[in-house]
Design a protein around this nucleic acid. Structure first.
Lengths: 158, 158
DNA sequence: GCCGAGGTACTCGGATACGATTTGTCCGAGTTAGAATGG
DNA sequence: CCATTCTAACTCGGACAAATCGTATCCGAGTACCTCGGC
């Protein structure tokens, strides 16, 4: 089980987008992070579909955040890229084989699926507590306090 | 991101194995759950490599749990089947592109990776609190109290 | 009747094809900014 | 000098291949039980 590579790109892109009000095109975001532009575009489209970013077409167009970075959580981004499907899909083994349980008697969810669902909920909850704004602050602090300024300047002069 | 299908099989197999002291061969477990025998064998090998089950060769051989079901957690099984690799692999985007951060200044982990790691830890912790014994009890209760007896009888007469 | 050797049937284990999902790329539709033109 | 039209460049968006991982399968190595023969 591996999380899509684009999740990391999308998160860093959101952090970068939080540093400007101006639309930033895909090509600019791609060279800023040194990733394949066409593939990054695909993920940005997913973010747009999920309502995390808004696309502006035409010259001087690009992507902007739809709401303040403090109101976007990592969960929003991960769900947008990875999709809403749960990790674990119960195939109802109980109802198969020679000892197939009577469907009427096992109407409630399989305990295995329930435990898996609870664990996944814990994962999502943890991601929901971290916002893009917090990520930006932490990244800035980890880099000595010049990362965000650097992004702002770079976006302004390009 | 999708969890391997074999995780569900492995969990149910462990529950079944907890109902007997006698070794149970792959073929028996496969027809009990109505799954492809050869593929189930692959996952059982993984469980054996992880030390969750022990294999006994020769006639009347098969698989048995290496320790009481109350001492085996869902995390043990999931880690055995899915592997130890984390969901999120940080590619250190900060060190790429025109604004590459000085490696000396970002020696600590990227905040994105840290948050992802924390969320994954929450997931693993949730899985670690549920044991195979608890799963067996819940499954029995959900099926009206005759599921475990059914498995025991079926394994005895086959 | 007891012991031992051999055979046999059953078990696991790793090496081998197939399919699906993820990854990566491309070109066309649509839109906006700016320039050129006419009033 | 201003409004209008036109062009042109730039943007996103979805449709199209390649690679990697999960799925499924097979056959060989090894072991314990059972049978048979000898003592």
């Amino acid at each position: 089980m591996k999380l899509s590579n684009g999740v990391e790109w999308a998160l860093h892109c959101c952090v970068s987008l939080s540093q400007t009000e101006h639309p930033v095109p895909t090509l600019r975001l791609a060279e800023l992070h040194d990733v394949p532009p066409a593939y990054l575009a695909k993920h940005l489209q997913a973010l747009a579909r999920a309502g995390v970013v808004r696309s502006t077409q035409g010259q001087d167009g690009g992507y902007t955040l739809t709401r303040p970075a403090a109101e976007i959580t990592m969960l929003d981004v991960v769900a947008a890229i990875d999709g809403p499907a749960p990790f674990f899909r119960c195939t109802e083994i109980r109802r198969r084989g020679p000892l197939a349980a009577d469907p009427a008697r096992c109407a409630n969810r399989c305990p295995v699926a329930r435990a898996m669902g609870a664990a996944e909920l814990a994962w999502r909850a943890a991601l929901g507590t971290v916002t893009i704004a917090e990520l930006a602050t932490d990244i800035d602090a980890a880099s000595g306090g010049d990362a965000l300024v650097g992004v702002r300047d770079w976006l302004r002069e390009h």
